[in-house]
Design a protein around this nucleic acid. Structure first.
Length: 650
DNA sequence: AAAATCAC
């Protein structure tokens, strides 16, 4: 009697962890129970497995049946020599008939993250007899892939010429046909070049109107192209339907302590459907918002406050003494797949909506927000366009400003730091694109040059544990280290190790933490008792219990248990991205050489402006720093919103 | 190279 030869598809399916409820260990024991092919899977045989009782056997049997779509995809992938674990995301995004759809169009695999064109080509060769590189499905997929890749750098559109070049590079002989196919599929939009500006001087002696420049033709993924169009239309709609909320004289009732520009911002909200309030840290944006909320409340106007992040929402709530939520919560977000309960059919019921940290709004979230605002709503976006752009694609706040389609109040007077101080002077220069030599005899700003990231890391530890407390008398507990990266000797991981060894050595008794450790949250847990914590909040461990930590965040103490524990990291050193929105008395900014490529003016500006009283810059990134500050952005985002807004405004 | 949000 010969043992049945194991089915390779079945083996790959089980080994990749695609059978729900089946652990790695039990998967390895299947052959011993005589289960080596799908036909072997019965409740009776599953019962022969160790640690499997009747109930579990039945559950495993039914979960195997329900995983049939994934199994079919595994069969396709294994046949093409591809990784089986891709099957789960394929079944998720392509649905129950994923296998059939991949057989019809193997290049649909490119819609999944982590799939290369070479992978999809391999699948095509295995699935389609006589597949070739000129297949129109392939061209169409490359168009979408090129646009999706650009999305990761924040672009919502790409010049058609660049897409043509990408198609050529992949051996597509007829790029125009590929673009037409992509547009016909509905996944991609084609945007004609704008009409040239009509210039009076030229018109006099020109026989013909100037032609649009074909080089300005762009393509977008439909979801982003449509989001920008909807956003522009809804800005125009709110601008056109708003009515004045209160007499400008009402501003006087809350004007005490506000400067002229801040008062103008209050008046602007009362009058305009959509308005912006911008300015750097410490210029009183939040103070102004608090005055607006106070004024509207006394008038009985319904105000909704929101922010793109949990931490910003929490801070907004504290500063205004009025409930604030994340924009996702405000809109009733329905999960990862997108979709919001609040929309055109069921709009928000606030008269005034205020969104803080609006530079973090990406184009889809902003479009959803505007869509949910009924006619007559006043929307105020508050933010600093000089700080880091949104994670998602788009350049919403900057485009709104550039378009000149909505009123903007820019606050420039600095109240928090000493206005003439070295931190403020440096920050203002960087905001304007200059990097002057630091002149700070009082050592408010100190630049520490370093060669290489290992030396940079040593300097950081020395500054925090020795120089800053000794020479400047600043308590290390109030000093925050900020770095662009996680990895490398001057990344958060290594710096935290080194800083813990110096500042609070210990074994890490609960989840790697000891009493006295500084921690940073990496996710929102706003419902923990009593107030929860928000992503990016920094706190100190004050107690360890049985699988629990007590953490003192600036907003108060929180008992952290269960899954929330895995959303804490050591927090002496954090990334610039995570530091956005927080400030500390002393800040050490590290610029290691390996971060040179990711340095940009917004990143540098965001890092520097975290400091209130002292700023040390450990500079090891050479000329990359000056170059980053000089250029507006190393890679500016290509978007269409500013032009759409300007067109709608005329 | 880094990154926020949401829900069951």
């Amino acid at each position: 009697m010969s043992a049945p030869s194991p089915d390779p598809v079945f083996a790959a399916f089980c080994a990749a962890g695609l059978w729900p409820g089946l652990g790695k260990r039990t998967a390895a024991e299947l052959p011993a129970a005589g289960i080596t092919s799908p036909d072997d899977v019965t409740a009776a045989r599953l019962l022969k497995l160790p640690r499997v009782g009747k109930q579990r056997a039945e559950r495993l049997f039914s979960s195997f049946l329900s995983a049939a779509p994934t199994y079919d995809v595994v069969a396709l992938l294994v046949g093409a020599g591809l990784e089986a674990r891709l099957a789960a995301s394929a079944a998720d995004s392509l649905g129950a008939d994923a296998a059939r759809r991949l057989r019809d169009d193997p290049w649909a695999l490119l819609g999944l993250t982590g799939v290369t064109l070479a992978d999809a080509d391999r699948l095509a060769i295995a699935v389609l007899p006589g597949a070739d590189r000129q297949d129109s499905r392939r061209g169409r997929a490359i168009v979408a892939l090129t646009l999706r890749t650009a999305t990761r750098d924040g672009h919502t559109v790409l010049p058609a010429d660049l897409v043509v070049a990408a198609l050529r590079a992949e051996g597509v002989a007829d790029p125009v046909a590929a673009i037409v196919a992509a547009v016909e599929s509905g996944e991609v939009l084609d945007h004609e070049p704008p009409e040239p500006e009509f210039a009076e001087d030229d018109a006099a002696d020109a026989d013909e109107l100037p032609e649009p420049d074909p080089a300005l033709r762009t393509l977008s993924l439909a979801r982003y192209g449509m989001a920008e169009e909807a956003l522009a239309e809804n800005v125009a709609r709110l601008a056109a339907t708003s009515e004045r909320i209160a007499d400008p004289a009402a501003v006087r009732s809350v004007a005490k302590g506000l400067d002229e520009a801040q008062k103008a911002a209050v008046a602007q909200v009362l009058g305009a459907g959509v308005s912006l309030l911008t300015g750097g840290p410490g210029t009183g944006k939040s103070r102004t918002v608090a005055a607006i909320v106070q004024l509207l409340r006394t008038k009985g106007t319904e105000v909704a406050l929101a922010a793109p992040t949990g931490r910003a929402a929490k801070r907004l709530e504290e500063l205004t003494d009025h409930p604030a939520v994340t924009v996702h919560r405000l809109l009733g977000a329905q999960g990862t797949s997108g979709g919001f309960a609040r929309n055109e059919e069921w709009p928000l019921d606030a008269d005034v909506v205020v969104v803080d940290e609006a530079s973090m709004l990406d184009v889809e979230l902003a479009a959803a927000l505007l869509e949910a605002c009924p006619d007559g709503t006043h929307l105020l976006l508050v933010g600093d366009p000089a700080q880091l752009p949104s994670i998602g694609p788009g350049h919403v706040l900057g485009d709104l400003i550039d378009s000149k389609a909505v009123p903007v109040t820019e606050l420039t007077t600095l109240y928090r730091q000493a206005e003439g101080g070295a931190i403020a002077r440096l920050a203002n220069a960087v905001r304007a694109g200059e990097l002057p030599p630091v002149d700070s005899p009082d050592r408010e700003v100190v630049v520490v040059p370093a060669t290489g990231s290992a030396e940079a890391a040593r300097r950081v530890v020395q500054l925090v544990t020795d120089s800053i407390p000794r020479a400047l008398r600043i308590d290390p507990a109030t000093v925050q280290v900020v770095t662009p990266v996680h990895r490398g000797p001057a990344g958060t991981i290594e710096l935290n190790k080194a800083l813990k060894a110096q500042l609070n050595p210990g074994e890490g008794t609960v989840w790697g933490f000891d009493v006295g450790d500084r921690v940073v949250a990496t996710a929102n847990h706003l419902d923990l008792e009593p107030i929860g914590f928000a992503n990016g909040e920094v706190g100190v461990v004050t107690g360890t219990g049985d699988g629990a930590l007590t953490v003192d965040f600036s907003s108060g103490p929180v008992t952290v248990t269960g899954t929330a524990l895995s959303d804490l990291r050591h927090g002496w050193a954090i990334t610039v991205h995570r530091a956005q929105g927080s400030e500390w008395p002393g800040v050490v900014v590290v610029l290691p050489p390996e971060a040179g490529g990711m340095l940009s003016r917004p990143l540098v500006y965001t890092a520097l402006t975290r400091a209130q009283r002292h700023l040390s810059i450990v500079h090891a990134s050479g000329a990359a720093l000056a170059r980053a500050v000089r250029e507006v952005d190393v890679r500016p985002r290509r978007t269409r919103l500013a032009r759409l807004l300007a067109e709608n405004a005329d």
